[in-house]
């Protein structure tokens, strides 16, 4: 896996801003979960498609998202 995004779902306000800036269109609000503030938090299922661009994390007003990228793997491929 080249990249990983993690959501601090407790703090997500379900605003969808991250979803519209993701170039891979892989973020969606998880309607099966309601967090303690009553929002459906954002999530990613197709993590393999994530390119670690961090657009989502930069756009999130509530600093919900952490983005990691496998730099080593990038170098070798």
């Amino acid at each position: 896996m080249a990249s990983r995004v993690t959501f601090n779902q407790d703090r997500c306000k379900g605003c969808s801003l991250c979803t519209v800036v993701c170039p891979k269109n892989i973020i969606f609000l998880d309607r099966t979960i309601t967090n303690r503030r009553g929002y459906h938090p954002a999530t990613v299922e197709d993590m393999a498609a994530c390119i670690g661009c961090a657009n989502c994390a930069r756009m999130c007003p509530d600093s919900v998202i952490t983005v990691e990228r496998n730099i080593e793997e990038e170098k070798t491929t």
């Binding site: 990983r4 605003c15 670690g52 999130c60």
Partner: peptide, 30 residues
């Protein structure tokens, strides 16, 4: 894995009270 983006250390851990999607939060981060 290297962290390419995480919550700024320039912000405290207090949850912001802004409405969902309000860009006040984005500007705070910058």
């Amino acid at each position: 894995m290297a962290v390419v983006y995480q919550k700024s250390t320039g912000l405290t851990d207090v949850e912001m009270h802004y409405c969902p999607g309000c860009t006040h939060g984005v500007i705070h981060k910058l």
